[in-house]
């Protein structure tokens, strides 16, 4: 029907079996796609390798922020206790660094923690609520039970036929076209999609 009028943003192949998804991911990776992704309800072991993803830079972010935090913490205590308003307490030197170690450590952890949260949100591209996958009935499947491979239309290799062929080749039984979200109209359209009525497993 007027599905044809809507912009195709990608294609998703849905799997029920983790080994099948891993195999499919390897195929897509080897086919040379760059703008594609897998969607799973839980982290799947071995999928990073199957997708050919580079290791996450998260540890460097955390460590760097932690070291900065620790240095700032120690510097703050040095400046306040020995420079700005030195007070002699308990006959200790103004810069009695052993007493400053606990707060230096806490500052390390505080900065590292904040950077881990911030870095994770940035790298995982969270905080972006608009996506063709949302407001689409496949989203609930990939956050509940099923495993999906999405080929995005923005990929230079993407044509609807090629993507269909590639997903067919992976043995995928449930292939759907993803359309750009259209205001209001999307809800009744979903049910007209051929495969949308697929049940979740044997429930």
């Amino acid at each position: 029907m007027h599905d044809q009028d809507r912009k195709v943003v990608g294609m998703i192949g849905l799997f029920d079996e983790p080994n099948a998804l891993i195999a499919a991911a390897e195929k897509v990776r080897d086919a040379g796609y760059t703008k594609w992704d897998c969607h799973t309800p839980y982290p799947l072991h071995g999928l990073d390798d199957a997708m050919g993803l580079k290791p996450s830079p998260m540890p460097y972010i955390t460590l760097t922020a932690g070291l900065i935090g620790g240095c700032l913490g120690m510097y703050m205590m040095y400046w306040m206790s020995a420079v700005d308003y030195p007070v002699r307490i308990g006959g200790k030197p103004y810069f009695s660094w052993p007493a400053f170690v606990p707060i230096t450590f806490e500052a390390f952890v505080l900065f590292a923690g904040l950077a881990t949260m911030g870095g994770m949100i940035k790298l995982t591209k969270l905080g972006r609520w608009a996506s063709p996958l949302h407001d689409n009935d496949v989203m609930v499947e990939v956050t509940t039970t099923r495993l999906g491979v999405v080929l995005e239309a923005e990929d230079p290799k993407f044509t609807q036929e090629a993507a269909q062929a590639l997903l067919d080749e992976t043995g995928c039984q449930d292939i759907r076209v993803l359309y750009a979200p259209e205001d209001e109209a999307s809800e009744d359209e979903a049910s007209e999609d051929d495969d949308a009525a697929t049940e979740h497993g044997e429930v």
């Binding site: 992704d37 897998c38 969607h39 799973t40 309800p41 982290p43 799947l44 999928l47 990073d48 997708m51 993803l53 996450s56 998260m58 540890p59 955390t62 932690g66 952890v109 590292a112 923690g113 881990t116 949260m117 870095g119 994770m120 949100i121 790298l123 995982t124 591209k125 969270l126 905080g127 972006r128 609520w129 608009a130 996506s131 996958l133 949302h134 989203m139 990939v142 956050t143």
Partner: peptide
């Protein structure tokens, strides 16, 4: 949920971040 999509490109960093939080 900050627009979480269950994307593996997100899971990858997410899992590392979770591990780092555990480590911290």
């Amino acid at each position: 949920s900050l627009g979480w999509k269950g994307s593996n490109r997100a899971w990858q960093h997410y899992e590392k971040a979770y591990l780092l939080f555990a480590g911290l």
